[in-house]
């Protein structure tokens, strides 16, 4: 079994900073971790503790996982599994990626892994409280999608955001996804990271293929399987 955890969020929301703190916590707890990120270049992590693979999730956009790109992502996971054998893979998707789409792409890797199953950790979406004004105007639809499909909305950068902006972030997130768990913290100050690590360890998020099948049956046959 490989668990995949997505740390989503728009450009500059603090994903990489957060993810590094998160990985440290999880490695201390004895996990073997691999990270798949958009841009390997800008990350500076101790390579002894993590295996890193570069992946452009850019083309995974607006719901489209260009069929061939989905194959690359699945292949990256399968290769990781064969060579490094992590028990947890943390993914930093681009801000235009759709969490459901990434789940689907990740599940494709099962084809190449002989009996290994993919399990999804809760999808964590970071909301940048410092830039909430900009997020709810210029790229609103993209941010809405990420929040709508999150299991956990992590209001980030509370170390420097005003209470007013934090409140605005909560209100916006709840209006889009009332079911998501709302958490607060700061990747920079290592605040709230342990709590997210707990959720990633303990909880799971639904699989794409099972949810898809249920949804299609419901639509085609009115809910009767």
């Amino acid at each position: 079994m490989v668990k995949i955890a997505q740390v989503a969020g728009f450009l500059g929301s603090g994903k990489t900073t957060f993810l590094i703190e998160l990985v440290k916590v999880l490695v201390d707890r004895g996990h073997k971790i691999a990270i798949i990120v958009n841009d390997v270049g800008e990350i500076n992590v101790d390579v002894r503790i993590v295996e890193m693979y570069g992946l452009k999730a850019k083309e995974i956009s607006g719901g489209c996982i260009c069929c061939q790109i989905a194959g690359n992502f699945a292949n990256t996971i399968a290769v990781l599994q064969k060579t490094f054998k992590p028990d947890l893979i943390i993914v930093e998707p681009s801000g235009v990626a759709i969490p459901w789409g990434l789940k689907r792409a990740a599940e494709y890797s099962e084809e190449e892994m002989e009996g290994e199953m993919i399990v999804h950790a809760p999808v964590v979406t970071l909301v940048d409280a410092l830039r909430i004004d900009e997020l709810i105007t210029s790229v609103r639809r993209l941010v809405e999608t990420q929040i709508r499909e999150a299991d956990v909305v992590f209001i980030n950068k509370v170390d420097s955001a005003t209470q007013e902006k934090i409140d605005m972030s909560v209100k916006f997130s709840k209006s889009i996804n009332p079911n998501a768990e709302i958490m607060f913290g700061s990747g920079r100050n290592n605040q709230g990271v342990r709590e997210v690590a707990d959720l990633i360890e303990k909880r799971t998020s639904p699989r794409y293929d099972e949810t898809y099948e249920k949804e299609m049956l419901k639509r085609e046959y009115g809910g009767k399987a």
């Binding site: 728009f10 450009l11 850019k58 956009s61 681009s94 801000g95 235009v96 900009e134 105007t137 210029s138 790229v139 993209l142």
Partner: peptide, 12 residues
């Protein structure tokens, strides 16, 4: 130009 950047620049 990277999708996220273009989406921000559409406004800015």
């Amino acid at each position: 130009a990277s999708a996220e950047k273009v989406f921000m620049d559409m406004y800015n």
